[in-house]
Write a protein that binds this DNA or RNA. Structure first.
Length: 277
DNA sequence: ACGCCCTCCTGTTGGC
DNA sequence: TGCCAACAGGAGGGCG
């Protein structure tokens, strides 16, 4: 399997945000240096000039976008599926796939590394929520709006599977491939079920499960696959808590049944045929 | 409106 | 042992 890296989902992004916030909040950007602008979208040539000298007002997160608030706008940082941000002393030698540095007035740099270059860097002026990448996003899983009624209602109107619904960022954001499988396991719902077959009770269990699995992952610092590290170099420990993800052929941790792997829309899905109905 | 597929990218893996 | 195709996946874009 090629997941040598973090596959940053919502918990990994939130872990990154919390790790770097104390290092960047209130600092001034001395310079942005772009070594490789060809990310998911090309980093604009004029971005360094726009950022230089600006104070960082704070950090935030929307879906899997890390937001860095500046005096005159907001940086939208996406980690893609192999990206990470590290806080390092200025002058630290670059390694392969280091693509840009934000030099801070503290003498530290915020360095972005991303082997697959699926990550991105955007700058929004004005309300970042109006930026095209954020404007159409669904509620956060921890929003009050994402409740059993909401999930049940949208699921009933869909022909797609329940796993597809969970992973559709126009319906609910932040649930990627790992946590979709894990949440469905905890809710005891089979991932291949048609979303419209979800009962009201199952919708309730699923809302709880999504929130539980995400908040637990945030609490322990994300999922370690191969070499995931947060901004301070500490690995995440959620991998140890996985019930089904990447456990095909192994015994279910609850009932002992062999965990299955199936493919849905080209993505791996894992489930226990006994625990999940 | 919805659902599905394609695309971007590169390190790792497995088959021959 | 070495080569190479397949695979992994977030998510926007496009198409039917």
């Amino acid at each position: 399997m090629g997941n040598y890296s973090a596959m940053p989902e919502l918990p990994e992004v939130e872990t990154t945000r919390r790790g770097l916030a104390p290092h960047v909040s209130g600092r001034r950007i001395a310079a942005l240096t772009v070594y490789e602008p060809r990310l998911r979208w090309r980093v604009p040539d004029d971005l360094p000039a726009k950022l230089a000298g600006q104070r960082i007002t704070g950090t935030g997160r929307r879906a899997k976008y890390l937001l860095i608030g500046l005096e005159s706008g907001t940086l939208l940082v996406h980690l893609g599926m192999s990206g990470n941000l590290r806080v390092l002393p200025a002058g630290t030698p670059r390694i392969a796939h280091d693509h840009y540095d934000l030099l801070l007035d503290s003498g530290k740099i915020l360095r972005f590394n991303d082997p697959r270059r699926f990550g991105s860097l955007h700058y929004a002026t004005g309300d970042p929520g109006r930026h095209p990448l954020l404007a159409e996003l669904a509620p956060e899983p921890f929003d009050a709006q994402f409740d059993p009624d909401y999930l049940w209602r949208i699921a009933r109107g869909r022909r797609a599977s329940i796993k597809q619904v969970l992973m559709n960022s126009r319906l609910v954001v932040g649930v990627g491939n790992i946590y979709a499988s894990e949440a469905l396991f905890r809710a005891r719902v089979r991932p291949g079920r048609g979303a419209r077959s979800l009962t009201r009770e199952e919708a309730g269990r699923l809302v709880k499960a999504v929130r539980a699995v995400l908040s637990m992952a945030i609490r322990v610092g994300g999922t370690t696959l191969r070499d995931y590290v947060g901004t301070d170099g500490e690995p995440g420990y959620f991998r140890q808590k996985l019930y089904v993800y990447e456990r095909a052929g192994k015994a279910c941790r609850v009932c002992g049944t062999v965990v299955r792997r199936v493919t849905q829309q080209g993505r791996s899905t894992y489930y226990c045929p006994t625990c999940q109905r």
